[in-house]
Amino acid sequence: MTPRLEKITSRNLDAALSVRVRPEQEFAVAPVVKSLAEAYVHPDTAWPRLITDDDRPVGFLMAFFDIDWREDGTLFRSGLWRLNIADGEQGRGYGRFAVESVAAEIRGRGGKELYVSWHQGENGPENFYLNLGFRPNGEMVEGEIVGVLDIGDAG
C-alpha cells in the first residue's frame, strides 16, 4: 500500500467523483460531489483531497482548518469534514491513512486536536473513529456526535 493525497484538479475530478461508499453507508456521509460544492463556497477553510493508491482512486477526504465553531470568534477548530472510502477499498488502511494525513496537516498548522462528527447506527463510522482514539466530547452537530482526537504537541 502506497497511498497518497492529491489536490482535486481538472485532471482527477472524474476519479474523485467516482468514489462511492457502500450503499448501506450512504446515510452517513455526503457524496463527493456535495463536498466539492461545499469546498467551492468555503475555499478558505475546506481542504478536499483524492486518496489514491498506485493512481487508483480509493477514497476522498475533506478537512477543515480554523473554522469559527461557535460563529462568535471565541472557538476555532480544525478537523475532518468528510471521509469517503470507496466500496471495495475499505478495511485496507486507507481510512487510517486519511486521518493520519489530516492530523499531520493540522499539526503542521500548529493545531493539537482533530475534530470529526459521525452518524450513529449500523453501518456508520462510529467504531472506526473510536478505534482510532477519537472520544465524544458531549457535543452534537446536525444530529451527529462530535469527537476529538488529541494529536499531540504541535512543536
Rank of each mutant, 00 (worst) to 15 (best):
W81R: 11
P23D: 10
F65C: 05
R11S: 15
L36S: 06
G59L: 01
N137R: 11
D68Y: 07
G91A: 03
R4I: 11
W118V: 13
D66H: 14
M62A: 08
W69Q: 09
E38H: 12
E89A: 10
Y94P: 01
K112R: 15
Y115K: 06
V146C: 08
L17T: 02
P23L: 06
L5A: 03
Q120A: 13
I145Y: 10
P125M: 12
A154M: 02
A98L: 01
S18W: 02
W118K: 08
V19I: 13
A63K: 03
P125G: 12
R96V: 14
A16I: 10
K7Q: 15
W118F: 15
G138S: 11
E26S: 02
M140P: 05
G108I: 00
R49T: 00
V33G: 04
Y129H: 13
V19D: 02
R107W: 07
W69P: 10
V141A: 08
R135K: 15
Y40Q: 14
S10G: 13
F76V: 12
V58M: 03
S18M: 01
A46Y: 03
R20A: 13
S35P: 04
I67T: 08
G111M: 04
R4D: 10
I51Q: 02
S18I: 00
A30W: 12
W47E: 13
G147A: 09
D153C: 07
